[in-house]
Structure formats: C-alpha cells, structure tokens
Design a protein around this nucleic acid. Structure first.
Lengths: 239, 239
DNA sequence: AGAATTAACTTGTAAATACAAGTAGGGTCA
DNA sequence: TGACCCTACTTGTATTTACAAGTTAATTCT
C-alpha cells in the first residue's frame, strides 16, 4: 500500500539523509558531505540541498557551522513527547517494550476524556481506538490511549503496533505525516486505573498529556492521551 | 545598549512582519500581502521573502495555503513552555501578574537543583539569579527560578522584569536569541516551599520543568526551573 | 622552527528567472 | 438561472549565478 507519490526533490534528499543517519551510515559527530558534494550526488542544486538540510537541522538530526560543515547529531531524542515524534523515539528504543492493552479496534468515539471537540466527519466515520503500555526496564512508564478517525486506513486494525512507532506506520504505509499539533500538560494524582497499569500507589503524581495532532492529510487528526510515571524517567525533550 | 547589527534582509523582513502581527496590524484570519507584494514593499525578491515567511510559519504566526495566501494565525500561544518563548507568552499576558520573589542578583551558582553540568567559564563568572511568581486571576500558577551566567549583561540586575518577558529583554537589549534547548518534565508532589508559594496543600501534584536553553551567543546558556500548579491552568502548547 | 599569510575549502545570503500546482472569481454558454 | 470553463492570481519547487563570511590547512616568510 506504499503510496509512492511524486515527492519533491528536497524531500527525497531529506528522506535519504535522514534514513542514513537513523541507520547509522552517518554517526554522531560525523560531518556530512558538503552541500556541493551532495549536489553532485543527488544531481541537483544548492538551494534544493539546503532546503533538505534545513529540515534536518530543524528536527535536530544535524547542526551546521559556517565554514566547517554539517555535523551529524544522531537521531533526535525526546523531540518526541514534546514535539513531533511518538513516544517510542522520545525515550529511545533500547529497553522499551510495548504492550498492547486494547488492540486497535473500530468503535464509537469516547468523547468523555477528550479535551477537543470533534469534527462532523470524524464523528461519522467512527474511530480507531487502542491502548498501549510502555515498559522500560520492567517498569511500566507510559500508558497511552490513541484515537484516530477511521478514514482511509485500510488494514490498520490488523497491523502490529508492538515494535513500531505509530508515526512510522502512518508515514510509511499511508503517507500521513504528523505536521504539528497542540497539547495540554498537567500533573495529576493517579486514579485507580492508572495506579494499576503504572504500578504506583495512591497519591502518586502522574504526568498527563492530552494531545491533538494534525497531519499532512487535511482534516485528519490524531488524538492521544499519555499518562506517565515520571518518577524514574523524567520526560526529556529538546526544542 | 541596543546592538543594531547588520541583520540579513530576511531577518529584517521577518522582524517587521512579526511585529506587525504581535502589534495587531494584522489580525487573526487576515491574509498577508502576497509574496510578490511583499517583494515590492521590502525591495527584495521572493526567495528572501519566503525565507522570512518560512520562519513565521515555523513559529506559528502564519499558515500558508497554496493558491490562496498566507493566513495570519496571531501570536502563537503556548509555544512557550514547551518550545521557545518564555512563560509570559505561554499563557497569554491578559491576566498574568509577575511578582518578583528574589530580585536579579549576582551570586554563586547553586548547583544543587541544577540538572545540567556547568561549563568552566560559566562557573567562573558567577550567575545572575532571580525567582519569580506568576499569578493568574489572583491564583499563583508558576513559580520559576532562573539562572544565567553573568557574562556581558551590563545593567541587567537593575532591569525591571515585572511586565516584560525575559526573552524579550534579552532579544531587544542584548541581541541574544534563544535558539533551542532541552528540558526535563516530571510530576512531583509539592514540597514545603512550593506549597507556600503556589498556595496548595500537602500532596498536591505539581508539574516540574527543568530546562537548559541555548542562545545565539555561543556558550551562553540559560537555566530555569518552573514549578506549575496545573490544576486550573493546564499548560498548553503547540508544536 | 615558529609565526603570519594565503589559498582552498565550507556554509550564509541574495537575486533573477521559470514553470508547476492550487484557488477563486468572472464570464460564457446552455 | 445554472453549470461549466477559463483566466488571473496565489504559493510551491527548482535552477543558475554571485558574492560574503567563517574555518582549516598548507605555504611562505622571518
């Protein structure tokens, strides 16, 4: 179902270099080929290359220094929770296990714990709903609920979410990119359900994040709620 | 002390339009003059104008729509706490009162509650330290501690922080722009001091943010800690 | 040998130009 | 009147060219 649309050149270049960095072709501290070299490699011109690099800079994959070059910073950590990627990339994937509490299913929207109003189309189509628990070093750390409109996501409910980030699946399988969003953060006390899932006592402070994310597909929004036991793993983010 | 350096054109244009939006010359929903019109006004070419607009898009001041134009979104709200601006712009300035708990003073670094290691230079020069309490509708909401190295910030300790955001002062008076940073978020229980300042009971959950911000001045970092009573005012952010 | 200069790189800024793609409104035709 | 099309506008992408400014390393001079 990979939709190989006609991406603009600068995005193609961006994707290639981005993949090289996340695949370890370029390591942290390495210096990328110069812009002129990249022009030659990708058969294009500097403005195009620079536009691709701009994006990599913005997302934290590289830093540039005039007169020197583009320095690889590695896969950005913790951009995640506070900015664009999913929880998976926020804490690094090393010791992270994802347990599916509620497998993706199509159901009616549960508007009770949704901080945002729904659009008509969204309500009509119903929603894909799932709950996940993220476990770091045998300790549950995140408990998250995700809801998204059931629009043009064929076969989604049969996909395996366990080891892949939701965002990756959306990007590679459905050509949906998360372009931004808004969120509300608050500290709360764990209720019964949270106490159970996150294995904490009554009165334990929990970080609660309620987010609405917009995507490259117009009118397609993701809604998620994250409950985080930040006692051992503070949420780290760059901006 | 305004350092009127030679800004590149696209930054000049960016600053002008940005100011127009925050001053209300352009209101939310307005459509900016077309890129070609802006070219004529600012006597430059589209790539330059587009670079300025790119930045405004990225910061959330405007949105662009192909075939239509650049739509003004207003001053971005809540980019603040979670991204670039200071606390002041995170919640809107309407009902926000800032109370200075500890006036800016030069002192030794207090490394005890600092999550980041200090550089040698920073430690040598000492730090400018202050504490502020942010009050919304008569309820204290934020309590924040800011530390920054005492390097080339003449007259800073005599400046009035009450109604201006720290970031604005740094940008306009010292030409220092916050370019990014990192932060750790966690939910904690209010200790004695926080209970007192934020007027909450024992066992009340508090959102704690520990941030290190980097600036356009190389090697100049800001350190701040924010304690937030998120009960009534959830922290809102866009990304 | 050591210090200063220079040359050859790097990225940063800027202009001029061209065409593609999306939007909106006016005009034409049925 | 209504549906359609076309045109004029918008932003999106891309090339080409030029010079400025910062970095690095080799070269030259003392």
């Amino acid at each position: 179902m990979r939709l190989s649309k006609n991406l603009p050149q600068y995005k193609v270049v961006y994707e290639i270099i981005r993949k090289h960095i996340s695949d370890g072709v370029y390591l942290k501290g390495d210096i990328l080929p110069s812009e002129n070299e990249l022009c030659a490699v990708h058969q294009t011109t500097r403005p195009t290359i620079r536009k691709a690099l701009d994006r990599l800079v913005h997302e934290g994959y590289i830093k540039k220094k005039q007169g020197k070059g583009s320095i690889v910073m590695g896969v950005p950590q913790g951009v995640g929770i506070l900015s664009l990627s999913g929880t998976t990339s926020a804490v690094g994937q090393e010791n992270l296990i994802t347990e599916i509490i509620v497998k993706p299913e199509i159901r009616q929207w549960d508007t009770s714990n949704l901080a945002y109003p729904l659009l008509n189309d969204e309500e009509e189509f119903g929603c894909i709903y799932f709950e996940r628990l993220r476990i770091m070093n045998k300790q549950p750390v995140f408990y998250d609920i995700t809801m998204m409109p059931n629009i043009n996501l064929r076969r989604f409910i049969s996909r395996n979410l366990e080891n892949k980030s939701l965002f990756n699946i959306l990007r590679t399988m459905y050509d949906i990119e998360v372009t931004g969003g808004e969120q509300r953060l608050m500290a709360i006390l764990a209720d019964k359900k949270i106490q159970e899932y996150l294995n904490v006592k009554e009165g334990h402070p929990i970080l609660h994040i309620n987010r609405k994310m917009e995507t490259s597909r117009e009118g397609f929004f993701l809604y998620s709620q994250v409950y985080c036991n930040s006692e051992k793993y503070a949420i780290f983010g760059t901006f």
